[in-house]
Nucleic acid binder design. Structure first.
Lengths: 192, 192
DNA sequence: CCCGTGATGGGACTTAGTCCCATCACTATA
DNA sequence: TATAGTGATGGGACTAAGTCCCATCACGGG
């Protein structure tokens, strides 16, 4: 038998999400989270940089977006490369099984300013990552910046639509939702 | 003679900026900031919600942007309304005298993740404010969102260009710089 | 059988941020 | 002139986040 229960970080994340839903983020102590996961404060801070980070684990998204852009055909225009990146994250990060969890997570974040602040920072990371990846394709700096910004907006909209779709029969995977969102954003940008 | 030295919030902000430049944000204590301003920790937290906020005082910008958009001619398209808003903040908030101070402030923020995080949150507030103002003009939701996002990007770029322009003979006021930035962003968005 | 490894426990410590009450110059009013 | 009210500040106690360092102890390899 294992010496320790496995998956300490995931157990902490689940405990945190539950407690934040029950009493709210600011009425929950790191010690309480650790206790519910059968661990201690020390272990919590060994796995997460701070209390907010427990809801934002796995910074894989920035990397996936960059990969997706880099892997797009050389002839792809900026927006097409972004679309490719959205497909990639849809395939690798937004599995249908996580849909319900994503909605709960979103609600918790929306209810607390500190968490919204962290989410804003993560958003900056995503656009920066996409901007870099586009520039490495030879796209001019400002164009990369704009395409990344609009791509991040599409990603945000897609995430909202995807996690709020309670309709279980709705078989749309994230990639489809994201492509539609990107198309909508592009159409809107021509109307400004 | 006045009972207290005047302008406690400004004195605190100046002391904080100096100390952050000298020892860095995380090596500076709120108590040290207050002492340099001839005040105490209690007074610091009476004027600022937290340690980060001392660099982001005056949330007037979101209001100014909303006013500028609302005050644009009824016939103005979204981007023109945004341009009007950038003129307004240039006139009301970015006086030439603050240029040097802005550059120092930007350097301090860039050097610290916590401060960048707060800046990201402020950015969300600006786009939200512009989105609302555009919707109140009858602009569709998604179009408002995209125009606000691109407007916020132009504002960020303009702020960088304006505060980095060390050339004292350069008489460009913020409005001019911002209009150019917005034009650049618009041009780039058609290339995606 | 012993030793290194690695995840965890635990406690001391600093600092951010909250709360509540005391202080005291200025001001208005009688 | 006396007096009570106002408002910004001082100060201290308190909680919780986050850091640091060392102890523990099951497991695997030699």
């Amino acid at each position: 038998m294992a010496r320790w229960q496995p998956n300490a970080p995931e157990r902490l994340a689940v405990a945190a999400l539950e407690l934040f839903e029950e009493r709210g983020y600011e009425n929950t102590t790191v010690i309480e989270i650790a206790e519910r996961a059968g661990l201690t404060k020390s272990t919590f801070f060994r796995h997460f940089q701070d209390k907010r980070e427990v809801l934002f684990g796995g910074d894989t998204m920035a990397g996936l977006l960059a990969e997706g852009i880099a892997a797009a055909p050389a002839t792809a225009k900026p927006f097409e490369a972004v679309a490719h990146a959205l497909d990639t994250v849809g395939r690798e990060a937004f599995h249908p099984a996580r849909r319900a969890l994503s909605a709960r997570r979103r609600a918790v974040i929306a209810a607390n300013p500190e968490l919204r602040e962290r989410e804003a920072l993560k958003g900056l990371g995503l656009t920066a990552s996409m901007t870099d990846a586009l520039e490495r394709r030879g796209v001019p700096e400002l164009t990369s910046c704009v395409a990344a910004e609009l791509g991040a907006l599409a990603l945000k909209i897609a995430y909202e639509r995807w996690s709020d779709a309670t309709d279980a029969t709705d078989g749309d995977d994230f990639g489809d939702v994201a492509r539609r969102a990107l198309r909508d954003v592009r159409a809107s940008s021509t109307l400004c």
